[in-house]
Amino acid sequence: MSEPILVVNEVTFRVGGATLVNRVDLVGHPGEVIAILGPNGAGKTTLLRLVAGDLVPDAGTLTINEIDTRSAVPLELAKVRSVMRQGGASDIPFTALAVVEMGRHPHRSDEGASPESDRLAIRSAMNRTDTVHLADRVFATLSGGEQTRVIMARVFAQAAPLVLLDEPTTALDVAHQERVLKEMGQLAADRACVVAVLHDLNAAAFHADRIVLMDGGVVRSEGSPDEVLRADLLSDVYGQAMTVVEHPTRGCPLVLVSDGVE
């Protein structure tokens, strides 16, 4: 396999007395979609924020393209990873186009940067997120789902080899959810590594190449969807009885909530 983009090594993060992320290892390669799953409070978002460089680990190391996130300057990091976080600002006074344009900020001083290459990246990002028709609308006046797609376009325009998404499908209707999830695969096909925190187990089952199942700050299981999405394991981690069957058309696991004893 090719050189990894992301290497998370024994990373631990504590707040107060609580250990939110405990000795987590994770390696991400180009062309991979990795889904992080787990119940509320499992440490998914904290792990993503550690990878993004927002939080500094108490122990362990994190590198993106061999850059240590702890010592990297923001511009350096912005060239190698893009982030879509949960609950970003909704009151942005700029037009959707201006917001997407800001995704190009890290590249303004790149060698070979030009207005044309920026426009191309912006247009393609907006096409892929179905936001071209929103270009001249003020971001603050868009619906929640439209805002999510515009932010997604900004993340695409940044064209970083590591893409971090925190629940990217929240607030989207089913069709746009599916579109965004498919775009994760498209990014991976373009040699990016996508790491997404997802709540929807079935979205992960079909769209992820690899699943990292977290619980209580540790990785409980990691592997292909077939390996991780097992009824006994899921029932235990989520504290809710689950059944796993085969998806009738997609052939991937289909997770269903069930009743009774696990």
Partner: peptide, 12 residues
């Protein structure tokens, strides 16, 4: 204006 985290993610 995008948010302080977002600005940092974009290299500010």
């Amino acid at each position: 204006a995008l948010g302080e985290s977002e600005a940092r993610h974009l290299g500010v």
